[in-house]
Design a protein around this nucleic acid. Structure first.
Lengths: 244, 244
DNA sequence: CTTGAAGGTTGGTTGAGCAGACCTTTTCCC
DNA sequence: GGGAAAAGGTCTGCTCAACCAACCTTCAAG
């Protein structure tokens, strides 16, 4: 046995030893359904599958699912009616969005960085693989968005659909999931800032150019337009939030 | 009340209702430490912090941490010595890597797609923000890698360091975490395929060009080189794995 | 006005995780 | 040589999330 001291763990590996946060089934369920509702993936009035079916699909016990449904009911996002023909429905109208918590605000730059990489990477991959059918669906969304420039509450769900739709062009479940997650994180940030029609008009113009680049399989252009598109939001946030 | 049937959930939202998999603290700990070891972030011989300190850092009970340490000990990745001056050490040498499971193989394309977006996005952001000091660290890694072209087992950990180092240039904890995760997923795929020196030489040449692009803040070029770099691995995998 | 499909309720069981005290081994240092 | 200190190893009891399996209540379709 030598007397050399063994190498200790360097400080650069803090990430490995960061606190673990074991997410319970209840928490993940609330999170998944909650973000899907807030993003407009489950529009107001939608009827969820019956509890007995849903808990089977989610792979959790019905009691656990009910905890989540009750929580989302108390926050006003869901309501349930009993008896035959009843069910659990997405509330219409939805409750007003909560202002972002200090923790969310503290890491807004990190969220934007995550969005930048995910969206740019997806834009490139989508440009590489896009099929005409998928591109046309996006073009329809762009047209629809043009009619909603003065109503951000209506604009936003379609905007989410556009970005998720872009991810779907990559034909990769993992990327679709990442996109919805990052859009959910962004939603908490941008739902409380003003979006004048000029801004949305400019944003949708970028959508249009992005679709054109994707259709032509121009990956570099798609990346550039997407960068510009996201930078717009970042600049607005930088002007309004701390640390900007 | 009208008689219009409420909108049901469309089939396109399967992702929202996919099974939840509540990860326990034990599982996440094994996963975190295990991948850090397998990636070489914790090199053989490294001494981990004492159990009492580590469980505090991880925010879990000592008994839970010990479960994880015991598990990693049984798989041969860790070994512990008792008494003053003892501790828990990363095993040297490490046990041979396990062949990838069928589940991992089944989704290898999805993993590669995830890697493509994460790495390309990070390359762009790194090119935008890189500081000279960080770039120099990467250049040193490239030089070191040049000397290991005929020894993949030694090459790989430094390769991981290179890519994680690139992520660190973005100064975003979230992106560093994503990079380590995707590298861990890749490790399971590529540790069992042949890597002749010519391939590694070519790969490291791409590293070199990537660093040059990052140093010059040439985002488009960085994206292009990174795409080429990753495509190399994909082609090799496509030739060896099902569904290629 | 029955019946079936839906949400709502209850109680018991299991197991992960926690807390903390205690034991054993080994080395450092007076 | 003999503590004292520092490390891993063990044990016990508690809490609470999650599960399971019934059973109850409501109410619209037929």
């Amino acid at each position: 046995m030598t007397t050399t001291t063994p190498p200790e763990v360097p400080a650069s590996l803090d990430a490995v030893f960061a606190p673990v946060h074991s997410q319970t089934a209840f928490e993940e369920t609330v999170d998944r359904l909650g973000t899907a509702i807030k993003l407009g993936l489950l529009p107001p009035g939608t009827r969820l599958p019956a509890e007995r079916e849903l808990c089977a699909r989610l792979g959790i016990a019905r009691s656990t699912l009910r905890q989540a449904l009750v929580a989302l009911g108390q926050s006003g996002h869901l309501h349930a009616t009993r008896g035959r023909g009843g069910g659990t429905f997405v509330a219409d109208p939805q409750p007003p969005a909560q202002p972002p918590s200090p923790e969310v605000l503290a890491e807004w730059r990190d969220v934007c960085d995550g969005r930048m990489t995910v969206e740019v990477g997806i834009a490139v991959l989508a440009a590489e693989r896009a099929q005409p059918a998928g591109v046309e669906a996006l073009e329809e969304l762009v047209v629809a968005l043009d009619g909603l420039l003065d109503d951000f509450v209506a604009y936003r769900p379609l905007d989410v659909r556009f970005h998720v739709g872009l991810a779907e062009l990559t034909d990769s479940p993992r990327l679709v999931k990442q996109m919805t997650e990052i859009q959910g994180a962004m939603g908490a940030l941008i739902s409380h800032i003003a979006h004048p029609p000029e801004v949305l008009d400019s944003a949708n113009d970028q959508h249009r150019r992005l679709v054109a680049a994707v259709r032509r399989h121009d990956e570099a252009l798609a990346a550039r337009v997407m960068t510009e598109h996201l930078r717009g939001t970042e600049h607005i946030l930088a002007g309004l939030l701390p640390g900007g």
